[in-house]
Structures are given as C-alpha cells and as structure tokens.
Amino acid sequence: MNRCAAVVAALCVAALACPSQAQAQSPRKFTAQTLRGELIVTNPPEVLLNRQPARLAPGARIRGADNLLVLSGALVGRSAVVHYTFDTQGNLLDIWVLNAAERSNHPWPVTLQQAAGWAFNPDTQTWSRP
C-alpha cells in the first residue's frame, strides 16, 4: 500500500513540475481567410464587429489571448482586438482575442477585399500589400 502511495505522490509531483500546454504556448497560426477587427459582445449571440452589428454562429469558438476557450458572456461590454473568420452564412465562427505580439503584427487585412488584394505568407504569418 505504501508503494502505491509513493508512486501516486511521485506522479503528482511530476505533473506539477511539467509545464502545461497553456504555459508552453507556441505562436498561433492563422489562415489567409482570417481578418482583424474590434469585437464588442453586446447581447450574445449579438456583437459589434468594427462598430457594425454582427452575429456569432451557432458553435462559434472564442479563444482568449492565452488560446483557451472563452464564453461570449465573459466578454460582454468589453472591447477586444481580434482575428476572426466567417461561416458560410456570414456569421462569426472562429474568434481569437489577440495577445500583444499578435496585435503588433502589421499590416493585417480588416476586410475581405483587402485580403483578396494582399499576399499572405503562412510560414511567417505576415501580409504584404501590392
């Protein structure tokens, strides 16, 4: 019995000593369909995106600056700089609240028209204007 307790204790200590996935975060990868904007959650699923009314898609995923999932209710009334994608109905599907390093990555398109006219390098996560 003491042997089992010692093994369990050793495993607990090892688990605490290892960095979790949230702590050892790698840079997030975005696609060429990802746009940047300002999001204010008003009354979920209703939001303001770049000061225009928009709607969260059913099953929309919001990831915080630490890449953990965030409920839309936790963001009510707060303004956040985000990257986002749309579903086929034009609703917001994937939303990432940007951390300081991601916010400093300029330029980043804010409209579909800009994204269509700019070149995206997925390896460096940068956009270049023509």
Rank of each mutant, 00 (worst) to 15 (best):
residue 60 A to V: 02
residue 108 W to F: 01
residue 119 A to G: 01
residue 60 A to F: 04
residue 105 N to W: 08
residue 16 L to C: 14
residue 115 A to V: 07
residue 73 G to C: 08
residue 51 R to G: 01
residue 9 A to W: 04
residue 28 R to T: 13
residue 63 R to D: 00
residue 84 Y to A: 11
residue 8 V to W: 11
residue 44 P to D: 11
residue 6 A to F: 04
residue 17 A to V: 09
residue 43 N to M: 04
residue 96 W to A: 14
residue 117 G to N: 14
residue 128 S to H: 07
residue 100 A to R: 15
residue 91 N to H: 12
residue 21 Q to F: 12
residue 43 N to T: 14
residue 54 A to I: 06
residue 118 W to E: 06
residue 74 A to D: 11
residue 70 V to T: 08
residue 105 N to V: 07
residue 62 I to F: 01
residue 45 P to W: 10
residue 105 N to M: 07
residue 59 G to Y: 06
residue 67 N to P: 03
residue 123 D to T: 09
residue 48 L to I: 02
residue 82 V to Y: 03
residue 10 A to C: 13
residue 78 R to T: 03
residue 33 Q to G: 05
residue 99 N to D: 12
residue 73 G to L: 11
residue 36 R to W: 07
residue 109 P to L: 13
residue 67 N to M: 04
residue 14 A to S: 12
residue 102 E to F: 00
residue 3 R to S: 08
residue 68 L to I: 08
residue 62 I to L: 06
residue 94 D to K: 14
residue 95 I to V: 11
residue 115 A to W: 04
residue 89 Q to E: 09
residue 105 N to G: 07
residue 4 C to P: 08
residue 24 A to K: 10
residue 5 A to E: 15
residue 24 A to S: 10
residue 54 A to D: 02
residue 77 G to H: 11
residue 71 L to Q: 12
residue 101 A to V: 07
residue 33 Q to K: 06
residue 61 R to S: 03
residue 129 R to F: 06
residue 88 T to P: 02
residue 115 A to D: 06
residue 126 T to R: 13
residue 84 Y to S: 03
residue 79 S to F: 10
residue 97 V to K: 01
residue 106 H to N: 05
residue 117 G to V: 00
residue 92 L to I: 12
residue 68 L to P: 05
residue 104 S to G: 01
residue 79 S to N: 15
residue 12 C to I: 12
residue 125 Q to V: 06
residue 33 Q to N: 12
residue 57 A to R: 02
residue 42 T to P: 07
residue 114 Q to S: 05
residue 124 T to R: 13
residue 13 V to R: 15
residue 54 A to H: 10
residue 43 N to G: 05
residue 73 G to S: 14
residue 60 A to S: 14
residue 82 V to I: 08
residue 96 W to T: 13
residue 43 N to W: 08
residue 68 L to R: 09
residue 14 A to W: 14
residue 35 L to V: 03
residue 58 P to M: 02
residue 81 V to A: 14
residue 88 T to V: 12
residue 27 P to V: 13
residue 97 V to H: 00
residue 33 Q to H: 07
